[in-house]
Write a protein that binds this DNA or RNA. Structure first.
Lengths: 224, 224
DNA sequence: CAATCTTTATAAAATCTTTATAATCAGCCG
DNA sequence: CGGCTGATTATAAAGATTTTATAAAGATTG
């Protein structure tokens, strides 16, 4: 967490409310009441998201947005009391990413903040244990940040173990899932590849911390 | 223009309305009434934006969205008759980029479509890795500033790899996207053309830095 | 005809399977 | 309790198989 958010809002009560709301989510908030000051801040220190109230005192919010977009593509959520279709269309075409009308629900605003922060930072729904990470989207495994190359079979086994983290998977289950149901009498396949995985992923392969053997049963990926 | 948009909406009247509306903006529209069919289309042919009605007959829209997000990060605008805060928050946290409630204004919806197409435009910005540049607008590739001539097939493969940078693309995916779904048993097509690409783009084609093989799986364009 | 794609053949590389041996474990009996 | 025994497991390394790279010949296209 701890993304930075700039709030440009000239009503002090609303500015304070937004600031408090965002800070409950551990965001770093910079609040401004004037467009010029906000721009100066952005030039010096980029932020992850901008909340913009269209009704500014010192300049038109639409103009501010258009000017910002000429050099900066940080996501902008416009907050406005104006419900007219024309205002929404204009703001969105000026480069706003979202448009919320007052009064708004706090939970919805926070959800829209999360949604707009998200596509900035690519989806990290990777599995991890210790300093090992498996990213199923990239089909890539890394250890302490460095990429570890796994063969297809090794990757398939690791993914299977991670999907059932902490559960014991029997030899039969692993053989069936990775090789197919006609291979259930070849437990040595699993052993050889498990040894390879330990070589690549464990600090001391002979005394594994993560890839544990359950004698007579199968294997377990220990995450806790 | 001519971005592709997938519409998942099971009310025929609304589906037709959305299709007509989007086509006025020169978009290529694919309409579906069932979640399964829409997913099948997306697997074979990615689109630039998805419009999703939460009220599907054959499955829960929220579930569909969550499932989609496990492998696909195409922008999604949710359209729904549900005005409850809880529904909005859930959809946005499931990965929706925007949430529009019915009834909605056509102009506003189109503006939100434009806004969501804008920050993703994978087709329209030049990609680059190392000293290689691919400009999809000019359909042109250059290396260290000098133009490199690619045939149509080579270009299609490279564009596909770039649009999924760092991800492994299986032989089947490449064959389906470039040649069509009836070619999934001809992996040698991919190999021959990949060798050509390496000849044209890699410093030492036999030890590729960018166009990597994932034995038994497919190929990956390595950008990091 | 020229460019490109498809097909084919062969060599090289990577991976998987098999095997052998050593280590470990569990239960049992002296 | 301790050591024996048979089963299970770990691991390296050799062998077999699959997959891949590449050139080049043939076919296709416009």
């Amino acid at each position: 967490m701890a993304e930075t958010i700039l709030v440009l809002e000239d009503d002090p009560a609303m500015q304070s409310f937004l600031g408090t709301l965002l800070k409950t989510q551990q965001h770093q908030v910079y609040s401004f009441g004037e467009g010029i000051a906000a721009l100066q801040h952005l030039v010096q220190q980029p932020v992850d998201l901008i909340l913009l109230d269209l009704g500014l005192a010192d300049m038109d919010g639409q103009l501010w947005l258009a000017q910002l977009r000429s050099w900066c593509d940080t996501p902008v959520i416009v907050i406005s009391a104006r419900h007219r279709e024309q205002d929404k269309v204009q703001a969105l075409d000026n480069g706003a990413n979202d448009y919320v009308t007052k009064p708004f629900s706090a939970a919805e605003l926070l959800a829209r903040v999360r949604a707009n922060l998200r596509h900035n930072t690519p989806q990290q729904q990777a599995f991890s244990f210790g300093d090992i990470r498996l990213d199923p989207v990239l089909r890539q495994v890394s250890r302490a940040g460095a990429e570890v190359h796994l063969t297809k079979t090794e990757y398939d086994i690791l993914l299977l173990l991670m999907r059932h983290a902490d559960k014991v998977l029997t030899h039969n289950q692993i053989l069936t899932q990775v090789w197919g149901k006609t291979y259930t009498d070849r437990p040595e396949y699993v052993r050889v590849h498990m040894a390879q995985l330990r070589q690549k992923l464990e600090d001391s392969p002979a005394a594994p911390v993560y890839l544990k053997t359950e004698p007579g049963v199968g294997y377990r990926l220990k995450m806790t």
